[in-house]
Every structure is written in C-alpha cells, then in structure tokens.
Nucleic acid binder design. Structure first.
Lengths: 114, 114
DNA sequence: TCTATATTTCCATAAATATAGAAACGTTGT
DNA sequence: ACAACGTTTCTATATTTATGGAAATATAGA
C-alpha cells in the first residue's frame, strides 16, 4: 500500500452512492450482490451504478464475478484491512506515551504495542 | 455518524497532499504539528496547505489550536475511530457464518462477536 | 435464430475540486 | 508604532468527477 493506492481507495469511498454500495456489500458478506439487486436497493440508474461499480473495482475495494447473466459484486475485505493499516501506520511514533495508555483511543493503535 | 458525514471525512482523506498531512499528524500524536512545520516537511506552498488544512478541519478529522503565532494541528483520533465503526457496521450480517470463522479476515468484524 | 434480461459503454453536460501567487490578517518583540 | 513572521483569504485557472439517456454487448432460454 502506498499513498497513490490509498488515495484511489479512499476516493472510491468518498461519494454518497459508492459508500452506500460498499456498505451494502459489507453487509452482504463474501457472496456479494448482483448489480441489479444493488440498483434496486439503492434506486440508482443502471448506467450510473455501473460507473460507480467501475470506480470501486478499479480501486480493488470490490471484486466482480460473473455467474450466468448476473455479475456478483462483493467487498474486498483484505484490501480494506490493508488500507486501515496504512492509515494508522506508525501511530503516535513521536509521542513517548507515558504509561500503558494508548495515545489515540485504542482502535488506531492496535499494532503499536511496544 | 451518517453517510453525509462519512463522505466528507473520506473525501478529506482522498487526496494525496491531505492524506500525507493526516499521516504526519497521526505520527505526531496528540500534540500535533504547526502549519509551517507541515509545509516544510511536505514541501507545499502556504496557501495550498491552508486550503487542505481547512478541508481536514471542516471534516473534523483534524483540530487546530493556536499557541502564540503558531497554529498546531492534530489528528482527531476519535473521529477516525467512529468512521471505521461506520464502515464496518453490520459486517456480514446476511451471512450465517459457519463456525467461529469471521467472514472478513478479522479487523473489520471486531464488533460482530455474536 | 429470436427475444428477454442483465449490464456496460458512449456521450454531453453540469458541478465540484486543486493549485498557487498576491494581498491581507494576527501575533509577537522592539 | 513598526517590522518580522506565521497563517489565511482572495482570485483566476486548470482539472477531475458525477449524472443519466440512448445505444451496444453478453448471456440464456424457447
């Protein structure tokens, strides 16, 4: 993961329709949802949905798998996890944290146990 | 946290310069960095930096605190944590996960222990 | 092969965002 | 009051992004 990569992923999420799409896919889990189902659930015109799905898959935050006439989209959980790791890299490195208190409320500091 | 809010935060990170600024602030920890220090570290003109800092503070992902002539910016870790929670809300709800295996590689499923 | 269905690509248009120089604004020390 | 410094606002310009109708493509079943 590098900056360029992270920006592409974040930009793919930084838009109302796409964020909703992604959240639907997170909820749907690994088996995903067909494009048409997403279009109905979120009430988005086909061409617009297709544009957004392309953005998400280009960011590799979502993967597509064709099954018959349907194309199933699902969230790429591993990519999301990598992104979170990148965002929190070297968290609070410059602060000598006094005591065991994590400097940033927990979640972010997962990997900085030293 | 709602979609609108999350989009603003994500958009504030979805840009090379701003992502780098945020990561510097994550590394700097709660005490933060003065605007000028960031400008030097990242080699960004003052006006451009100011524009980006405004975006980040508007998203409330970064907070500003004036001390004398300097303005110190620091990462709002709690807001970042809220965002992560929002992104992973109801993760894999629709999948009856067989066994104890988390459906999405760990990190994302933190809160879905049931 | 013909038809229906699922999805994407093409296209034009509208809107939002990034950039950086110059000028302005606060704060501090003299 | 003045000068120096840190930072922001103003401004214009260039670039990127979103939207959705219409046409094209792909798959499946009769």
């Amino acid at each position: 993961m590098d900056t360029k990569n992270a920006v592409i992923i974040l930009a793919s999420l930084a838009q109302g329709a796409r964020l909703e799409i992604f959240r639907q896919l997170v909820q749907a889990g690994p088996s995903g949802l067909a494009a048409g189902d997403i279009a109905i659930k979120l009430n988005i015109p086909g061409s617009t949905l297709s544009f957004h799905l392309k953005e998400l898959t280009h960011a590799e935050l979502v993967t597509a798998k064709q099954t018959g006439r349907f194309i199933y989209y699902s969230a790429a959980f591993n990519v999301m996890n990598d992104l979170l790791g990148y965002l929190t890299e070297n968290c609070c490195q410059l602060e000598k944290s006094s005591s065991e208190n994590l400097c940033c409320d927990g979640l972010l500091c997962n990997e900085v146990a030293s």
